[in-house]
Design a binder for these strands. Structure first.
Lengths: 223, 223
DNA sequence: AATGGCACTTAACCTAGATTAAGAAAATTA
DNA sequence: TAATTTTCTTAATCTAGGTTAAGTGCCATT
């Protein structure tokens, strides 16, 4: 999981009141949640009760940059939806080299799909790159929701289809494009991310060493 | 689409009667169809009526090797399930180089997922590598089935999840493994395929030139 | 303000795999 | 059966990107 639909809802969050009253807090919660609900409603429509039910099965957590949400060898228990901040999933091969599978910023889902569906230990790490607010949906709750609200089964089918299409395209790109062209595609896929994460992460995503990426970048600037 | 679940049902087909009577023909049809039904029932159980409904929405077609089922620029109208034979999906980049996205043999699904879900022109070709018998499921019928038999929505969700996991693994492999190691993984993913398709197709799948593949192979044999 | 740890750069050298070309073997087709 | 097209092999040469190493700048702690 981790896919390609971002939306414009964040604007809402900017209106956050600073008040501490119980009521303000509750409104705040609603606004936070509307990002994920809106994300879902891009594909399926939910009734008020269904939204309520869905939200009751999720929880919000805050994580500091550098937190590790999942390590290689662990079983992935949750799908994570990003309200704010940036995460990445990556693996580490024998040579102690990291490879980024996906980034996730506002409005994206992330998780270790293999471990999530098999409930076996995976080989991915999930790390927070920038302080993040996440919506957690446990594997069990997700399964319950599939039968309680069949529309959600549709939603996640569509989500997964989109993720697959994006992945296939990236795979073909890796087979046929140069590092420079892949960097170009990265910029389009994750607009604005270049300013927010260390460039060694981008190098790892497009599949080159930080040294080569640096060389390539300065060549691009000289143009 | 095109994913990683194969099953052992082909055995059934070997019992095919050669008789031409109406009855034998009907039994034959049932056996053909039981491959796809069995494939579905690995993940969800269907009633007799549901199976009937599902089958009524599919059609069987036979294609000769070298047939092109889909070309770049066309809109993909069907998901294809392989009863027998071998297909591949691939794209062609500027340099007129082909890259294989997927192979599909008995018990696998194949299609251009991007074009299928967006109903826009895709950039994949789908070609028959070995005379094939396919079950065709049109996009419209597939959508109807989702609402008529919600269990099928679950089936295709699971199918897509598995395809995504396989794709992610291949992507990471391409980033971190040598051509030799990727060839090794190919052999495991598509056992028996090495004998059935030209090796330039395998080279294209693992992402090397036919020349390099040949060199690599003779090096492996010398060991 | 000093220390250590990252992230980034530069540069010399190295290698997996690409390219080009030409011939041999195998498979299609006539 | 021969003719033609494809596939496969071998070999020389080339290059995108890797490796190693050393140095710079930038924070975060103390």
């Amino acid at each position: 999981m981790s896919f390609s639909i971002v939306d414009e809802l964040f604007e809402l969050r900017k209106e956050q009141t600073k008040q501490n009253s119980y009521i303000a807090e509750s409104i705040f919660q609603k606004r936070i949640m509307s990002l994920i609900i809106n994300n879902i409603e891009k594909h399926v429509q939910l009734t008020a009760e269904e939204k309520q039910l869905f939200l009751s099965k999720t929880e919000i957590q805050h994580y500091k940059a550098k937190s590790i949400l999942l390590s290689s060898g662990e079983i992935c228990k949750h799908s994570y939806f990003v309200n704010s901040g940036i995460l990445r999933s990556f693996n580490i091969n024998d040579n102690i080299v990291e490879h980024v599978l996906n980034f996730a910023c506002e409005g994206w889902w992330i998780g270790d799909m293999y471990s999530l569906i098999s409930q076996k230990p995976g080989n991915l790490f999930i790390e927070v790159l920038e302080d993040a607010e996440l919506v957690l949906l446990s594997k069990e709750n997700q399964n319950q929701l599939y039968t309680e609200i069949p529309k959600l089964e549709r939603f996640f089918r569509i989500l997964t289809e989109n993720a697959l299409v994006a992945n296939q395209e990236r795979l073909m790109d890796n087979l046929s494009l140069s590092a420079e062209e892949r960097f170009d595609k990265f910029c389009k896929r994750y607009p604005g991310l270049i300013q927010r994460i260390p460039q060694k992460q981008i190098a790892s995503y497009i599949g080159v060493t930080p040294e080569f990426f640096s060389k390539m970048k300065s060549k691009l600037l000289r143009k």
